[in-house]
Structure formats: C-alpha cells, structure tokens
Design a protein around this nucleic acid. Structure first.
Lengths: 334, 334
DNA sequence: CTGAAAGCGCTTACAG
DNA sequence: CTGAAAGCGCTTACAG
C-alpha cells in the first residue's frame, strides 16, 4: 500500500527534458535556460516531487545532516542548547539529528556509529562521563568534522565550546566567602565529571586564596538531581552540623537542598547559604530566590553549530577551544 | 582529506567472500555457514566497517529513521516528550530526527518535507497552531505512517495521542468553584490553539453546571509565556479588579501571574487564586506552591512512539485516538 | 550455502 | 544549453 514516490525521472518526462537537466535545475548548477528551469520547477511542484536525499547523498557524498549527541535531552540545559543548535544549523541549511546517551559511554558509541551510518556531515558532542579519545576515534577515521561542547576531554586536541567552570567555581566560592561563610560543602555530580572537578577546584582555590588553611567541610558525590540534593543535605546536616554553606553542582540539586533544610527547620540564606549553577529560569521564583552562577547553554548551542559548519567547509582549520564566561547572579539564598 | 569509508566490497575482499554474502550476514538473512558468518563479522570489525544507510535505504526502501516534529524543543514539556519518543523509538531500533517548527505552519511544511527527503519511516507530529489537513497531505501522498500528538486537528481521521483537555479544564474549574471563587479569568495561549479552547470550554462548562449565569470575567489571549502571564495579570487587575481567580494556560504563565500579583500587593492563594496546567517539576517549590493540573508529556511521548512503530508495521491499522487523563494537583495557590 | 548481476534515485564529468 | 552513461554502496531475486 506504500505509494510510489515520484522520482527525478518522472519529473524529467513530465517536463520533457532529461533527468540530468532536472538535477541541475534542482541544485542550481550548470547553465540551463530560464525557460527550461521554469518548466522543470513547475513539473516538480505539480508532481509533488521531493528529492530523495539517500540517493543524492550516496552519489555526491554531500550531506546536509548534522548530528547532536547529548546526555539527556529532557534536561532543560541540554534542551535549550539543542534548540539553538537546531536553529543555527537550519540557518545554514542543515537538518539536525538529536540523540541522547543517558551519559553512558556504550550508548554514546552506538549513537555515534548510527549517526555516521546515517551519513551526517558533522557531529556536535557533549561527551558522556568517562569518555576518552578512543571513543571519538571512529569519527576521525571516517574523516567527519566534529566539535565537542560542554564537557571537555582534558588534553584532547579537538574543537571545544564550553564554560570556564573553574572560573564559575571561583565566583561561587568568593561570593560565599565575602558573605562570611567558612564551613562550605560541595554537593552533587559524579566524581569523574570534568565540569564538577573544575567547579569544585575553583571553589577550593578561592578558599585557599582567602586563607591557606581553609578546606571543604564535605564533598558529596552523587547524581545531579533534586532527589540527591535533598538526601545529601540531610546526610550533611546529620554528620557535619556546622556546615554553613552548600555549593550545589546545579540548581536542581539546590532546590533539593532547600527542601532538606526546611525539613530540618533551617532557614535558607540565613542559617545556611545555598548556591547553585545554571540559573534555570524558575530559580528566581524559588523561596528564597536562588543565588547561582549563570551559564549560557543557548550560546554554547549556537557557537557550536557555527563552529561545526565552518569545520565542515574546511576540515583543516586548526582546533579551537572557546570558553564562555559565567555570570554570578546574586539573589537571597547566599 | 576526507578519508575513504570502507565499503561492503572491501569487507568482502578481506573476508574472501562476495559482497552479497556480507550483506546477508550483516542483515542476519539467508543461510550462511557459521564459519563464513564469523569470518565476515571479524573482517567488518577489523576494518571498522559502518553500513552506509543511505545506500541501504535507497536499495531496500527500508528506513530506521523516525521523525519528530514539535513546536519548540526548548520547552520542557516537549523536551520531556521528545526524550521519551527517542527512548521508545531506540528500543524498537529506530533513530529519531527531531525538529522544531516554532509553532509556524510554513516552517512545519519545510520540516516535514525535509524529513521525507531524508527517508524517515514515520512521523510523530505535534501540529503547529493553524495547521489543517492539507498540511499533512504530503505525508499521505508519500504513504508514510504518522501519528499526531498533543494538538488535535478537529474531525481529522488520524492517529492521535493527547490529553483530555476539556476534562482538564473541568477539573480546574470545579476545584476553583469548590473553593468558593466565582470571578474567574482565563489567561494565556493563542485563540486558535485547540488545547486552549478545550481547556477554557471545560472551565466554562464547570461554571455553567454550578450556576447557569456564571461566565468568565475575562479571556486574555496571548503567548503562553511567563512574560505574558505577568503583563496580562497587570491588565486584569487594572480593568477587572474584582477578579478572584486566574486560570492560566500553563504553569509558566502562572508564575508570571504570581509576579504581577505580588507587585500589586495581592497575596496569591488568599486574595487571588491561581491555577496552572502541566505541573512542571519546579512548581512545587514556588511560593506559594502551585495548584495545577498535571499532564503527562512523557507518557504521550512513549505512547506516540509505540503507536508509530505499530503503524509502520501495519499501515492499514485503523486510526486510533488516545486521550490520557489529567490529574489535579492541589497545593496552596488555589 | 554462496556468487553474479541488476537496480534503487540520484549526480557528474563528458560529448555535442 | 542539454542528454547519454557511468557509478555511489547497498540488497535481492535467481542460479547453481
């Protein structure tokens, strides 16, 4: 029952020209008379012709597909990033294929291979935790341009667009110290997440600079979720009751911390300071409004797409690493 | 500098068999000896072979690509829906292509054609406001299975997975009336959005059932954004100061209403009731926690993907419409 | 159990 | 300015 698609051949017959001519017109190539051009376009439209990209990709080796690999598309951070990649790519004529890895290296491998199989012209990747160079070797082997974003592979010479996480950590740390807090805990995120490491080291750097003897009260490792923020904070209050400030790996962890603190009768922003990262839109409406370090997923998305498009045009371009500056947003929680 | 991809032919040579045999092994078809099978797989692995899907799709007409068309991927509602489509599709062996329409009919047309050109096996569409049957005619003509979700085309015989928006409206209306509010306004969303119409009619139905003379104080049409929620509420307070309850088209509009009410010194949940739709995760943490009608984007996503996969297997299946029941979540704002 | 050959729908030199 | 022909990398009857 699958209807027959109309091919270039049928358009050619309808227009009274050859298939080659139709192809030339459709791709705005060659020197075709205006009359023929018009006739071909008219026939194509009348027949409802849609170019079969599989065939054209196969023959020409040219693709207008871009692949975006993220950890979890339902995370608002990546959703916003994806939206901008998509828009920017569309401006350059590319369609985006998006897939999530669930932050799992095996899934990431599968997804990348599938995308290569689909014939993507290039790839934008926020690498899964635990990735190393070998995981991107397939891409190199196939000569496909790619840019990494958000999560960096230390010492890996590839294009990268991300934040200066260390600086973000320093900003958070200095702000808390300025407010007079000294017993600081770091909560959430997995141990080998490079963003986590940089942010935490930034906080520690700010602390040492203030007072060489100052160290984190606790460093709690776990998923970057509201639930974990809640549970970890409870643990923190039980085991290190003197903790006066909690630096959370993101705003969701922070809202979990809010809940735990309220359960225990501690006032957020007065008894205990809480600071997050991301500045999700809702955090301004929380009670109290959250102090956080804003990152810019939308900028990352469009910069990454632009970089990839350039890379596709010239794969010889030497790799660039771009770090966007974070911004401290002071509200009432710290 | 583009490296040459290894083809099935090279694998065949390396394994000492024909290309046909390699294809058969890779697709688990035909009756190939175990020995040959193993040798072929080994060669494919050694050479880093990845099947060229463009070629296989061209030849076989079979595709493992699914297209998802939504209004705006950065909207958490669609982000969650998309995530589940993707997961469910992946379980069935399909890769998802996601694209946003910006709720624009022209963009939607372009996106659908592009996806057909890419050779998708099926399409899941949350139609742009203002779409009609003609916009999906291309898909039918090409014999491509598709299912609509979230937004319904009235009277259109196609598979559909969505919510019972009328029921959601009734739930919101009845709750507010039970709490004693009578001067109710409806805020946000565009006039021809079918979800908006159904929700509003549900509210009005609940009102008439309570008292035939009861009618909405105001019906404010506009974008479903926080900003509009804020501005419209300000307008409402100025022009209809007796308004005692605001039904917002979604939770983001509701948080905008919160802001405006606070600016004007009105206490949310006491002076003026506010109710939303969606139950975005953060709404529980707002001040006060939001009363809202929960919808289930994740369920829509997985149901839609399942329906599409079945439809791809049997395009003769008569269209089904599935309406998921909403759930009232009572907190402190109404 | 395996191979030779045709063909999917395009694009691209090349010839005229 | 336009057409005939080859070929991209696969899959699929068919023959043996």
């Amino acid at each position: 029952m699958q209807k027959k698609r109309v091919s270039i051949k049928e358009v050619a017959e309808h227009a009274g020209v050859s298939a080659a001519t139709v192809s030339l017109v459709l791709n705005d190539k060659g020197s075709i008379s205006d009359k023929t051009r018009k006739q071909v376009r008219k026939s194509a439209k009348e027949l409802g012709f849609i170019l079969n990209k599989s065939a054209s990709r196969l023959r020409s080796g040219q693709s207008l597909l871009i692949g975006l690999v993220v950890n979890d598309i339902s995370n608002p951070f990546f959703a916003e990033l994806s939206a901008n990649v998509e828009t920017e790519a569309a401006n350059a004529g590319y369609l985006s294929v998006i897939a999530s890895t669930q932050d799992n290296v095996e899934t990431q491998k599968f997804v990348i291979e599938t995308m290569i199989g689909q014939g993507v012209a290039g790839l934008i990747i926020s690498s899964a935790t635990g990735s190393d160079e070998a995981d991107f070797e397939v891409i190199r082997k196939h000569g496909i341009p790619y840019v990494l974003c958000v999560r960096e592979l230390p010492g890996y010479a590839a294009d990268f667009i991300g934040f200066d996480n260390f600086q973000a950590g320093v900003m958070a740390g200095e702000h808390i110290l300025d407010r007079g807090y000294r017993d600081i805990a770091f909560v959430g995120g997995f141990a080998d997440n490079t963003n986590r490491i940089s942010r935490r080291e930034g906080v520690k750097y700010a602390m040492r600079r203030r007072d060489p003897d100052l160290a984190l009260v606790r460093d709690l490792v776990g998923p970057a979720t509201r639930q974990y923020g809640h549970d970890a904070t409870l643990e923190l209050l039980a085991q290190s009751p003197d903790t006066s400030a909690i630096v959370c790996i993101n705003d969701y962890v922070a809202i979990g911390a809010y809940a735990a603190l309220k359960e225990k009768g501690r006032e957020v922003g007065a008894d205990v300071a809480v600071i997050g990262f991301d500045n999700v839109p809702e955090s301004a409406a929380w009670n109290p409004p959250l102090t956080t370090v804003e990152l810019f997923p939308r900028s990352i998305g469009s910069r990454a797409a632009k970089a990839l498009v350039e890379k596709i045009r010239d794969n010889q371009r030497p790799p660039e690493r771009i770090y966007l500056a974070p911004k401290l947003v002071v509200r009432d929680s710290a």
